[in-house]
Design a protein around this nucleic acid. Structure first.
Length: 590
RNA sequence: GGCCUCGUUGUACAAUGGAUAGUAUAAGAGUUUCCGAAGCUCCAGACCCAGGUUCGAUUCCUGGCGAGGCCA
């Protein structure tokens, strides 16, 4: 139990004794004491003033006296303008340190029996991954790890959008312009290869539309009547009927794409416990429509299309099956939601999907609830904002989309350049250097994309992300490597006793380290890795400022040296653990 | 047109309704015979506007203005 909880419980108890009423933790606020004041934790007294009809000073004084006398955890207090600052006894902090400094699992919570699925990444197979996918992948992976650390059993899943008109576009363009070329024959990564034909399709399409429009056809008609588009529509129908040549082509080209994706996923560290393919799940929609009609959740219109009325929920009437009997995305998604539950018996289902789908996901959840799917209320859309560049928004039409692989390459090159400029790694061999560049480059990118609240749109600045100064991944990695270096030179040896006199900065490190379990719980609760990112950075910063002034080597006494080494070990463990939750590689040297 | 999200220093990000609105960068001033200066110390700069609720509002509510997204 953290000192925060201890303080809350004792405060509730003390208030009860003093004023003979019952209190809860919502009746007052506890926060960490600001550095410029004396004390470790602060109770804000204003919320109690009205209820007790006493002045903040009186309440503070009575409460503090009681806490100091009875709890056994607090040694001193002061009251400033309605804020009660309490000092926790040194023995408590030293016990935390002695008991946990060597525990590499410190901060992680025991299994709680909850099963959670995190669906993320979810690519289309007609083009390669881009910058937006990177935010998605890093978020999904990190959230899954954070939930595990918080005690959940987690299944990572991915739904591959492997069918539909967009795939057929690439396929048709390859038939027209491919000349039998393959990723192998052109030395191109498979997903990029297929993506090129998607671009070629659009170029040809635009050309044909313009020709038709020039010959007098209306713009709208031209868009429908362009031969290449009609051929694509026909191919989609043939695919749905399972025509062998089309299926073979489809399998071949998707295979190329998967080979490409595998490489990217391996580089960025994404993995999945279960991959779903839309080609297998898109028929689940039909089952759902039947079920919905039976339960009178859906209604059939005169033209045979099926609808759901969500006007009472403040939304629209929404179509769930077209008049030709084909299902729409939303119904397929509900079918898959049901299948996930049946296969894994999950308590909670998290979808990492961009915020442009907020409306879609709201409807999905609502329909699932109306159909009374198990745990429908525990469908959660982890919505994230778009990633923009300093130069502006990414627009596929304008060709300003940043390719994931290209960006990763750029990050590796930059990390190499910066590292070489510093010239600190002369004793590294070629293999170690390559690993290091990857560790730094990817660490920089992950930290930068995760340090922002997921809900908010953000600007990704590649140059700034790989800066070794400031609020960045490399700074945290550097701090870790530096601690490991100190510990190599001066290992921590067992010692019977420890200095009980703490410097203010030593205590600041301890207070911060002790909060790690709370931070994991908060990050899991909010599904927000930025909580961990800012915490880890804070730990690194405090460590640096402390050891700049108070080195291990020059410690005043042996007891001080021992204490500082213990602190260094615990800091390294927390940094390492936190970086792993963010998917960041932990360098022993850099 | 309807619905949703967001406006915080030059820039990028924080802040369960609480202390002097944090942090990082860039700008300015220091700091390497000292365990890693990829560090540390100091300095200066911001809540879109107008109302309302409150002991107290960047936060909650209403209305503007501005940016973005979704739907037909």
């Amino acid at each position: 139990m953290s000192i925060l909880h201890i303080l809350q419980e004792n405060t509730i108890k003390s208030l009860g004794e003093l004023y003979e009423q019952s209190f809860s933790e919502n009746d007052f606020q506890v926060s960490q004491t600001k550095p410029e004041f004396e004390g470790d934790y602060t109770i804000v007294l204003f919320s109690l003033v009205k209820r007790l009809k006493l002045s903040p000073d009186d309440i503070g004084k009575q409460l503090a006296e009681n806490l100091v006398k009875n709890s056994g955890y607090f040694t001193a207090y002061n009251i400033i303008k309605g804020f009660l600052n309490l000092t926790v006894k040194n023995e408590y902090w030293l016990e935390v340190l002695a008991g946990n400094h060597n525990d590499i699992c410190f901060g992680k919570h025991p299994m709680n029996g909850q099963k959670v699925m995190v669906e993320y990444s979810s690519p289309n197979t007609n083009k390669p991954l881009h910058l937006g996918h990177l935010r998605n992948n890093f978020l999904g992976w990190s959230v899954a790890e954070i939930l595990k650390a918080n005690g959940c059993e987690v299944f990572k899943s991915c739904i591959v959008n492997d069918r539909g008109i967009h795939i057929c576009k690439s396929m048709l363009a390859w038939q027209m312009f491919g000349n039998g070329q393959t990723p192998h024959s052109t030395q191109t990564k498979g997903d990029h290869f297929v993506g090129e034909y998607y671009v070629k399709f659009n170029e040809e399409y635009k050309k044909q539309v313009k020709e038709l429009a020039d010959s007098g056809m209306s713009e709208a008609d031209a868009e429908k009547k362009a031969p290449i588009m009609m051929a694509t529509q026909q191919m989609l129908q043939e695919w749905e009927k399972g025509k062998p040549e089309v299926m073979d082509l489809w399998k071949k080209m998707n295979g190329w794409v998967y080979d490409g994706f595998d490489v990217t996923y391996k580089t960025i560290g994404s993995d999945f416990d279960k991959t779903y393919y839309e080609s297998n799940t898109y028929l689940l929609g039909k089952k759902i429509v039947d079920e919905g009609l039976k339960k009178n959740v859906f209604v059939k219109d005169g033209d045979n299309s099926v609808w759901i009325d969500l006007t009472n929920e403040g939304l629209d009437r929404k179509i769930v099956q077209r008049k030709d009997g084909t299902s729409v995305y939303i119904t397929q998604d509900i079918g898959l939601a049901q299948q996930k539950y049946e296969e894994y018996k999950i308590d909670k289902s998290i979808y990492v999907i961009g915020d442009e789908q907020n409306y879609h996901m709201k409807v999905l959840k609502l329909i699932a609830e109306k159909l009374a799917l198990p745990n429908a209320e525990n469908i959660y859309h982890l919505s994230y904002g778009m990633v923009e560049l300093p130069s502006g928004k990414m627009k596929s039409r304008e060709g300003t989309v940043v390719d994931a692989d290209d960006l990763v390459d750029e990050m590796l090159a930059t990390s190499k350049q910066h590292t070489e400029e510093l010239g600190k790694v002369k004793d590294f061999n070629a293999g170690e250097l390559e690993t290091l560049y990857k560790t730094i480059g990817l660490g920089a990118m992950k930290f930068y994309l995760l340090r922002v609240d997921p809900k908010k749109k953000m600007i990704f600045n590649p140059e700034e992300s790989i800066d070794f100064h400031g609020y960045t991944g490399p700074f945290v990695q550097y701090t870790y490597a530096r601690i490991k270096s100190i510990l190599r030179k001066e290992p921590l040896l067992p010692n019977a006793s420890i200095d009980t006199d703490l410097l203010k900065l030593e205590k600041e490190i301890l207070v911060t380290l002790e909060q790690y379990p709370t931070m994991i719980a908060q990050a899991a609760n909010e599904l927000n890795p930025s909580v961990i990112a800012s915490y880890v950075f804070n730990v690194a910063k405090i460590f640096n400022s402390f050891y700049a002034e108070h080195s291990v080597a020059n410690a005043e006494t042996e007891l001080k040296k021992y204490l500082r080494l213990q602190l260094a070990v615990m800091t390294a463990n927390v940094l390492s653990s936190g970086m792993q939750l963010l998917g960041i590689q932990v360098p022993e040297r850099m």
